[in-house]
Structures are given as C-alpha cells and as structure tokens.
C-alpha cells in the first residue's frame, strides 16, 4: 500500500462519447484547414503564371470591384433584414397570440427552405419589375442622396434589388434565431421591468433587447455569412460591370465574388481558374474578418451579458 493515488475509473461509455465529441470538434477544424490549404495552393499559380487577360492590371484591381460588390450587397441586405428580423422575432415572441405566433413561425421557417435559384428567378421576374417604379420615384425625389443618384436602370435589376433579395433570403434564419433568443429572456427580468411600471415596449427595451443583444449580433453574422456567399440569386439578378459604385439604382453594378466565380468558372481555363480561386480566398478572408469583428463586439460587453 505505497501508492495512495485514487484509482481513476474509466467507463466505456464515457470514453466513447468523449472521443466522438473530440473527433467531431477536430473534424471542423480539419475541414477548415483543408479548405484554406486548397484555396492557398490553387491561388498561387494566378500570381506566378503567365499574365491573365481578365486581370491585365493585376490581381487587386481585378478583385476590388468584386470585394466591393460582395460587401455592399451584403450590407444592404443586412441593413434591411436586421430590423425586420428583430421586429418579426419580437412580434412572435412577445406580441402575437400563441396560435398565430406558431403559424407565423412556420411561415418564416418555410421561407428558409426555398432554394436560392427560386429567389433569383423571383428577383428577376417579379421583384425587379415591381420595384422599377419605386426606383424611379426614389431617383426623382431623393436623387440628391448619392446612393439614389444616376441613370435609373430600366429593368429594375439593380444593386438594391439584389440587396432586397438577399435580405429576404437571410431573414428567416435571422428571425428564427432572434426569436429563440427573445423567448429565453428570463421571466424574472421581464417582471422586474413591468413591476417598475414599464409599458410593454419599455419592458422590451429594458429587459428583452439588451439580453438578446449578443444573440442579435450572432444572428446578423450568420445572415451576413449567407449573404456574402450567396451565388445564384445575385448572379441571376445582376448584369455585372467591373466598377466600384455606391449608386444602387443604376444598371452598372459591381458583381459579387461568389456570383463572379459561378459565372466565369465554366469558361475559365488555365490559370484563369486559379485567379477565380484566389478571389474565393479573398471571400474566405472577408468572412473571417467579419466574424472576428462580431466576436470582439460581443466579448467587449461580456460582463454585462446576463450569462451569469
């Protein structure tokens, strides 16, 4: 009896599940690393190989309009979707009666299930013609604001249309997530606000929204992720030009990275393919930066998060 160390009991079930969970976690990182490695390896020839006609002025001037288009379209989409998603989530979680809230919840979830090709078609055939008169009105009356200036597109297939299509695409996932967060608001905090004499809206401002803030940011980031990577709807709606322009109503619009890859890839050969993959790498980097910013924003007020 020299060794007094307590014997650690190892149960088969614990070992199996611990390892399963470990591999699941590692496989995420491995997948990410593999994708990053692929993008890096395949991008190199675009810089080392013979010059490419499409990017005669160098890679960065080639990719810049696409980066701009990607971020711009996503930001427009998100700017429209976030307030709407918060509104829908609030309505479902705190205002609608339970039956109607359920129906509405299903409807929102259904929107998420529609493939993006359908959204693209809908954008071209329904939304663009429908919005065209509104665009003219905006241009005539608010044309002094730079983003509404310029020659209005006759087809309605503009950056703003893309932004709206993207907003509708990311809305369901955002609304569903935010709704869940809002439903988690501790009853205790809601009652604290009400007992102080808060009206329903004041209660929401005091208890629900601050509590849901990190969740709203996370939801927005997920939505942004989807918008940044969205291919088909953008490729179908926009007739792209290699420009950087903030005007959202004109027919000259910068394309997004993802849509550009989808449009060019079938005809690309040689190191043009590598060039497209390099733009994919840029998209990868944008997504990562955006997510890191979001993490930082959330962690900045972690001690006030209510998670304690």
């Amino acid at each position: 009896m020299t060794d007094t160390k307590p014997k650690v009991v190892r149960r088969l079930g614990d070992v199996v599940f611990a390892n399963l969970a470990f591999f699941a976690g590692v496989s995420i990182l491995a997948t990410l690393a593999t994708v990053a490695a692929f993008l890096f390896a395949q991008s190199v020839p675009a810089f080392t190989g013979p010059p490419i006609d499409a990017a005669s002025e160098g890679f960065f001037s080639y990719v810049l309009p696409f980066v701009f288009g990607t971020v711009y379209a996503s930001v427009i989409g998100l700017a429209i979707a976030t307030p709407l998603a918060i509104g829908i989530a609030l309505y479902i979680s705190h205002f609608a009666n339970r039956k109607f809230a359920q129906v509405l919840g299903y409807a929102v979830d259904l929107l998420a299930a529609i493939p993006s090709v359908v959204y693209g078609l809908w954008g071209i055939l329904v939304l663009a013609p429908f919005l065209s008169p509104t665009f003219n009105w905006l241009n005539e009356n608010l044309g002094w604001i730079p983003i509404f200036a310029g020659q209005v597109s006759a087809t309605g297939r503009t950056m703003l249309t893309v932004g709206i299509v993207l907003a509708i695409m990311v809305l369901p996932i955002m609304a569903a997530l935010i709704r869940e967060i809002f439903l988690q608001t501790p009853r205790l905090h809601e009652e604290a606000a009400l007992a102080l004499g808060a009206t329903r809206w004041e209660m929401i401002k005091m208890a629900v929204l601050p509590f849901g803030r990190p969740g709203i940011i996370s939801a927005a980031m997920l939505g942004l992720g989807r918008a940044l990577g969205e291919t088909m709807a953008v490729a179908m709606v926009l007739s792209p030009a290699a420009v950087v322009s903030f005007a959202v109503l004109t027919s000259t619009n910068s394309n997004t990275i993802a849509a550009n890859i989808a449009l060019q890839f079938p005809e690309a050969g040689g190191n043009y393919t590598n060039l497209l993959i390099a733009t994919g790498l840029v998209l990868f980097a944008i997504t990562m930066v955006v997510n890191m910013i979001a993490r930082w924003v959330i962690s900045r007020r972690a001690e006030f998060s209510g998670a304690n």
């Binding site: 205790l188 009652e191 604290a192 509590f211 007020r301 209510g306 304690n308």
Partner: peptide, 13 residues
C-alpha cells in the same frame, strides 16, 4: 414597488 423572490437586477445594466 415590488421585490421578488429571487434577486433580479437587470444583468445588462
């Protein structure tokens, strides 16, 4: 004014 069974200060404030 009301004070509840479990302390419920607003965590975000």
């Amino acid at each position: 004014g009301m004070v509840f069974q479990r302390p419920n200060p607003f965590p975000t404030m």
